[in-house]
Design a binder for these strands. Structure first.
Length: 125
DNA sequence: GCCCTGACTGCTA
DNA sequence: TTAGCAGCCAGGG
Protein backbone atom coordinates (compact mmCIF):
# COMPACT_ATOMS: atom_id res chain seq x y z
CA UNK A 1 0.00 0.00 0.00
CA UNK A 2 1.07 3.54 -0.54
CA UNK A 3 0.08 6.63 1.36
CA UNK A 4 1.04 10.25 1.04
CA UNK A 5 0.59 11.09 4.67
CA UNK A 6 3.55 11.05 7.00
CA UNK A 7 3.70 8.74 9.96
CA UNK A 8 2.54 11.35 12.47
CA UNK A 9 -0.64 12.08 10.55
CA UNK A 10 -1.37 8.38 10.22
CA UNK A 11 -1.04 7.97 13.97
CA UNK A 12 -3.49 10.82 14.56
CA UNK A 13 -6.02 9.38 12.11
CA UNK A 14 -5.92 5.99 13.82
CA UNK A 15 -6.22 7.60 17.24
CA UNK A 16 -9.36 9.40 16.09
CA UNK A 17 -11.02 6.03 15.53
CA UNK A 18 -10.70 4.87 19.14
CA UNK A 19 -14.20 4.90 20.66
CA UNK A 20 -14.94 6.85 23.83
CA UNK A 21 -14.34 4.66 26.89
CA UNK A 22 -11.85 2.42 25.09
CA UNK A 23 -8.06 2.35 25.13
CA UNK A 24 -5.24 0.87 23.10
CA UNK A 25 -1.45 0.86 23.36
CA UNK A 26 1.29 2.53 21.34
CA UNK A 27 2.58 -0.67 19.80
CA UNK A 28 -0.88 -1.65 18.56
CA UNK A 29 -1.18 1.56 16.56
CA UNK A 30 2.32 1.11 15.17
CA UNK A 31 1.38 -2.39 14.07
CA UNK A 32 -1.79 -1.18 12.35
CA UNK A 33 0.40 1.21 10.38
CA UNK A 34 2.67 -1.59 9.26
CA UNK A 35 5.55 -0.54 11.52
CA UNK A 36 5.46 -3.07 14.38
CA UNK A 37 8.54 -1.69 16.10
CA UNK A 38 7.61 1.96 15.99
CA UNK A 39 5.78 2.22 19.31
CA UNK A 40 8.09 4.97 20.51
CA UNK A 41 7.45 6.94 17.37
CA UNK A 42 3.71 6.70 18.03
CA UNK A 43 4.25 8.24 21.45
CA UNK A 44 6.37 10.90 19.87
CA UNK A 45 3.64 11.68 17.34
CA UNK A 46 1.08 12.21 20.10
CA UNK A 47 3.54 14.34 22.02
CA UNK A 48 3.96 16.48 18.91
CA UNK A 49 0.31 17.57 18.92
CA UNK A 50 -0.14 21.28 19.46
CA UNK A 51 -2.56 22.24 22.26
CA UNK A 52 -5.17 23.09 19.64
CA UNK A 53 -4.74 19.77 17.87
CA UNK A 54 -4.78 17.91 21.18
CA UNK A 55 -8.30 19.18 21.78
CA UNK A 56 -9.43 17.44 18.60
CA UNK A 57 -7.55 14.16 19.00
CA UNK A 58 -8.42 11.68 21.82
CA UNK A 59 -4.75 11.16 22.69
CA UNK A 60 -5.68 10.05 26.21
CA UNK A 61 -6.99 6.76 24.82
CA UNK A 62 -3.47 5.60 23.96
CA UNK A 63 -1.55 4.14 26.91
CA UNK A 64 1.36 1.73 27.26
CA UNK A 65 1.07 -2.00 26.86
CA UNK A 66 1.20 -2.69 30.58
CA UNK A 67 -2.12 -0.84 30.91
CA UNK A 68 -0.87 2.31 32.54
CA UNK A 69 -0.63 5.95 31.53
CA UNK A 70 2.94 6.84 30.72
CA UNK A 71 2.47 10.31 29.29
CA UNK A 72 5.41 12.66 29.70
CA UNK A 73 4.19 15.99 28.51
CA UNK A 74 4.55 19.48 29.94
CA UNK A 75 0.82 20.06 29.45
CA UNK A 76 -0.41 16.85 31.05
CA UNK A 77 0.63 14.44 33.80
CA UNK A 78 -0.22 10.71 33.90
CA UNK A 79 -2.87 11.52 36.51
CA UNK A 80 -4.54 13.93 34.06
CA UNK A 81 -4.68 11.27 31.39
CA UNK A 82 -6.09 8.74 33.82
CA UNK A 83 -8.80 11.09 35.08
CA UNK A 84 -9.77 11.94 31.50
CA UNK A 85 -10.22 8.23 30.82
CA UNK A 86 -12.09 7.65 34.06
CA UNK A 87 -14.47 10.42 32.98
CA UNK A 88 -15.17 8.27 29.89
CA UNK A 89 -15.85 5.21 32.01
CA UNK A 90 -12.48 3.49 31.95
CA UNK A 91 -11.66 1.94 35.32
CA UNK A 92 -8.16 1.87 36.80
CA UNK A 93 -7.10 -0.15 39.83
CA UNK A 94 -5.36 1.30 42.87
CA UNK A 95 -1.96 0.95 41.21
CA UNK A 96 -3.02 2.76 38.06
CA UNK A 97 -3.53 -0.23 35.79
CA UNK A 98 -6.53 -0.72 33.53
CA UNK A 99 -7.79 -3.94 31.97
CA UNK A 100 -7.45 -4.28 28.18
CA UNK A 101 -9.81 -7.23 28.42
CA UNK A 102 -12.60 -4.89 29.50
CA UNK A 103 -11.64 -1.54 28.01
CA UNK A 104 -9.28 -2.44 25.19
CA UNK A 105 -10.14 -1.36 21.62
CA UNK A 106 -10.24 -4.17 19.08
CA UNK A 107 -8.47 -2.04 16.51
CA UNK A 108 -8.85 -1.90 12.74
CA UNK A 109 -8.32 -4.53 10.06
CA UNK A 110 -5.62 -3.82 7.46
CA UNK A 111 -8.20 -2.99 4.81
CA UNK A 112 -9.98 -0.63 7.18
CA UNK A 113 -6.69 1.12 7.84
CA UNK A 114 -6.08 1.36 4.12
CA UNK A 115 -9.46 2.95 3.52
CA UNK A 116 -9.07 5.29 6.46
CA UNK A 117 -5.68 6.59 5.42
CA UNK A 118 -6.86 7.09 1.87
CA UNK A 119 -10.15 8.84 2.68
CA UNK A 120 -10.23 10.31 6.19
CA UNK A 121 -9.33 13.89 7.02
CA UNK A 122 -7.87 15.30 10.18
CA UNK A 123 -10.20 17.72 12.00
CA UNK A 124 -8.16 20.78 11.07
CA UNK A 125 -7.76 19.86 7.40
C1' DG B 1 23.74 10.61 5.27
C1' DC B 2 24.96 10.69 10.35
C1' DC B 3 23.46 11.50 14.96
C1' DC B 4 20.17 12.46 18.49
C1' DT B 5 15.61 12.24 20.57
C1' DG B 6 11.39 10.14 22.47
C1' DA B 7 3.98 9.83 25.96
C1' DC B 8 7.67 2.19 24.00
C1' DT B 9 8.79 -2.91 24.65
C1' DG B 10 10.59 -7.14 25.94
C1' DC B 11 14.17 -9.44 28.22
C1' DT B 12 17.36 -10.05 32.17
C1' DA B 13 18.65 -9.96 36.91
C1' DT C 1 7.74 -7.57 41.88
C1' DT C 2 10.54 -3.75 40.35
C1' DA C 3 14.69 -1.81 37.82
C1' DG C 4 17.86 -1.50 34.30
C1' DC C 5 19.07 -1.89 29.56
C1' DA C 6 19.35 -2.44 24.77
C1' DG C 7 16.70 -2.48 20.44
C1' DC C 8 13.34 -0.26 18.18
C1' DC C 9 12.00 3.53 14.14
C1' DA C 10 10.47 8.13 12.03
C1' DG C 11 11.67 13.09 12.05
C1' DG C 12 14.51 16.89 12.51
C1' DG C 13 19.06 19.34 12.68
Amino acid sequence: MRHNRNFFEKVWLITLQIPRGRVTWYGAIAEMLGAPGAARTVGWALGALTPAQARAIPWQRVINKSGRCSIRNAEHAPADQQSRLEAEGVIFDARGYTDFGRFGWSGLDPDEVDFLLARARLPWE
